[in-house]
Simulated assay, not measured.
Amino acid sequence: MSSSTVANRYAQALFQVSLKKGTLEQSIEELRAIKTVLKTTPEFSQFLSNPKISKEQKHSFIRTSFQSASQDVITTLLLLVDKKRLDILESMIEKFVSLSFEAQNIAEATVYSAKALTEQEQEQIAQVFASKVGKARLLINNVVNADLLGGFKIRIGDRIYDGSIKSQLDRLERQLVTGTR
């Protein structure tokens, strides 16, 4: 069985439990925090994947490291340790977040802009583009990109909406070069 299939099964199981208990938002936050720890602290992953360290030590380490996490998330982590499946943790977290957002009709958007957007600007963009993509809510992640000159570019899933001045200038240049207008 492929790693992505196994990750999907674990994500689906945790999703069903969180949905039933009404803790989707909490589980998303906790799993994202765990993913951040994995990415920023390679020693954490090395410790958990070390075969010389016993399951009990790993269990204890997880419980103390994530003592504020919900029991369902902790149980899932412990199960991954028991089954020696910690290699799928990141993909399981991504799948869980995807399932949760789909159930809540939420999408994530990355907005590239020449300068940092204010909260009000982010809310306006979220309102306008949520209806365009058929979602109830849009979560905005603002990335400052000085190459844009002005305007912004939005990526929602596999869609890109480009309203940057740079892209408008590039289109104008192509039209001038080809002689069409």
Score class of each variant (00 low, 15 high):
residue 124 Q to V: 09
residue 41 T to E: 07
residue 114 A to T: 02
residue 121 E to D: 13
residue 168 Q to C: 03
residue 112 Y to P: 00
residue 169 L to D: 04
residue 144 V to P: 00
residue 46 Q to K: 15
residue 116 A to S: 15
residue 141 N to V: 03
residue 126 A to M: 11
residue 101 F to H: 14
residue 139 L to R: 04
residue 39 K to S: 15
residue 45 S to E: 11
residue 26 Q to C: 13
residue 164 S to P: 07
residue 23 T to W: 05
residue 84 K to W: 10
residue 159 R to V: 02
residue 153 K to R: 06
residue 21 K to C: 06
residue 137 R to L: 09
residue 42 P to W: 12
residue 6 V to T: 09
residue 148 L to A: 03
residue 55 K to V: 13
residue 41 T to R: 12
residue 169 L to Y: 02
residue 60 S to Y: 04
residue 156 I to W: 00
residue 8 N to G: 13
residue 7 A to Y: 02
residue 49 S to E: 12
residue 108 E to N: 08
residue 161 Y to I: 05
residue 155 R to M: 05
residue 155 R to T: 06
residue 45 S to F: 13
residue 36 T to M: 13
residue 153 K to C: 00
residue 61 F to A: 09
residue 83 K to Q: 11
residue 60 S to A: 07
residue 40 T to S: 14
residue 58 K to A: 03
residue 11 A to C: 08
residue 142 N to T: 03
residue 57 Q to E: 15
residue 88 I to D: 02
residue 16 Q to P: 04
residue 100 S to P: 04
residue 106 I to K: 08
residue 79 L to H: 07
residue 102 E to C: 07
residue 163 G to L: 09
residue 153 K to H: 01
residue 119 E to M: 12
residue 175 Q to T: 12
residue 156 I to Q: 00
residue 112 Y to V: 00
residue 44 F to K: 06
residue 72 D to P: 05
residue 99 L to M: 13
residue 94 E to L: 13
residue 171 R to V: 08
residue 107 A to N: 05
residue 167 S to L: 04
residue 99 L to F: 11
residue 51 P to H: 05
residue 141 N to D: 08
residue 160 I to F: 00
residue 92 M to A: 05
residue 57 Q to I: 12
residue 151 G to M: 02
residue 54 S to P: 11
residue 147 D to W: 01
residue 32 R to E: 12
residue 49 S to H: 11
residue 110 T to S: 01
residue 90 E to G: 10
residue 92 M to E: 01
residue 79 L to S: 11
residue 37 V to D: 07
residue 54 S to C: 13
residue 164 S to Q: 04
